[in-house]
Design a protein around this nucleic acid. Structure first.
Lengths: 257, 257
DNA sequence: GCGTGTGAATGGTTTCACAGCG
DNA sequence: CGCTGTGAAACCATTCACACGC
């Protein structure tokens, strides 16, 4: 999904499907929880339930990593934690910079799961001179003039962009020029990057819009058949024309017809 | 990820693929930008470039909505903005509650894109009594005791969870019981919900781990990667692929199986 | 002509179902 | 016997290529 020419034409025989890669962190988290409770082994069924997927999918996913299970028994928790960690590259240390220390950037800097597993916040960077030196999550914010130097000195290859939309592309360009090859983008913009650079985006408003779509669809279907699977608890109908109850008279007015 | 029951396409009309739905917000954003610059029409090629997808995909996506383009010309920007907004349900107002007003919750409350398009922060809720009454982003935080009342009074059907992991499931249960049917979860946990409730998750650490995987692969392309998928649990320590440079003391004990 | 709209071809992912092994 | 590992089938998504209509 990065650039136009995104094709990696079968780099090597090393072919773990993208969809599987995206689930490995989920399995890892579930396994870590089991590990902390000193559970020695799990079946695909149990682990799948904990990770919120189905067991056939999980077994297929693991089959791409190798045969790490024992038939008739299940998977060794510790061993699997190690194997997945290694596959994901978490047995090494990844220094990360966060650019844009507003509300969101500060939240990310404070996020515990960040440091907990392989990732380390190497620096916080902001364009506002007034922020410089101010500690956030115990780390002093540095001015963006230092960006290139910070990247190089720390061998940073992963950058997190938490700037306003307008600043995202320029920041991205500088990160890439300085040597960053993976970017996690929280700004609501499509980033353009050269080949070989990975971009993943996290976009609140896109997620909300997807939810709204499904929500609207649910509201439009009050003629359920005899399925009767899920009795929605409070049978209160919601979210129709909402021009009546709101304490706030603000109308969004997205578009006239 | 859409919860449980796959919707039967029995109702022949609205069968928009999930992948398409996920891209509509992207198109909408690009179109809105064009609209603000008073661009009257776009070709699939141009719009696709702005949205970061390829044009065949975009045309196929739009074909699910109907035939809104003009051959030889392109798409009318304003008209398409309206059609997509309507399809996504953004022509109505969606009151949203945010639960958990820590760093992240505050960031979300302050996020501009939130209110800008169809969504309205109806309330901020936190379990900490000390937070109650304190305004965040101009909205006073309310205590979680009020949760059910708030949901009902405001007809909220979308909830955002930004609590610590441990609190997420209980909060989720209460939201659902009170009538929420769509949840955006920022806590690093798998949420269990009844049928008919949609959950989407945003998970920083999963995204970072996916990036790390690709980053590691890139690094491994310079050095001949030694294949680690050996026979059975005997040669498991062949993890020499990547130079172990990190002082990461957290490596789990290697298991002989 | 030009660019949309769409069947058909391709590629990837999920699910099924069962063989195989501890 | 129970549970993993995996071909094969079913499903979904993307890409191709071209007919069609402005």
């Amino acid at each position: 999904m990065a650039t136009g020419r995104t094709h990696r034409p079968a780099t090597r025989s090393r072919g773990i499907p993208e969809a599987t890669v995206a689930r490995l962190p989920l399995y890892l988290r579930a396994l870590t929880a089991l590990s902390e409770r000193s559970v020695p082994t799990v079946s695909s069924e149990e682990l799948a339930a904990a990770a919120g997927v189905n067991s056939a999918k999980l077994r297929k996913d693991f089959s791409y990593l190798g045969s790490y299970g024992t038939r008739g028994v299940g998977y060794d928790v510790e061993y699997l934690v190690y194997q997945i960690s290694r596959e994901l590259g978490l047995t090494q240390d990844w220094p990360v910079v966060i650019v844009g220390i507003g509300n969101l950037g500060a939240a990310l800097a404070n996020y515990g799961g960040f440091a907990s597993r392989g990732f380390r916040v190497a620096a916080l960077i902001d364009a506002d001179p007034a922020m410089a030196g101010k500690p956030v999550a115990g780390i002093p914010v540095q001015h963006s003039d230092e960006l290139e130097k910070i990247i190089e000195d720390n061998g940073v290859s992963i950058g997190v962009i938490a700037t306003p939309a307008g600043a995202a592309q320029p920041v991205c360009d500088r990160l890439v020029a300085a040597g960053v090859t993976s970017i996690l983008n929280f700004a609501p913009t499509v980033l353009t990057v050269p080949d070989g650079v990975d971009v993943r985006k996290v976009d609140l408003s896109i997620e909300l819009q997807i939810l709204a779509f499904h929500e609207q669809r649910k509201a439009g279907e009050e003629a359920a058949a005899s399925d009767g699977a899920g009795p929605v608890p409070a049978g209160r109908d919601s979210a129709a024309a909402s021009a009546d109850k709101g304490p706030d008279g603000d109308v969004p007015a997205v578009m006239p017809a």
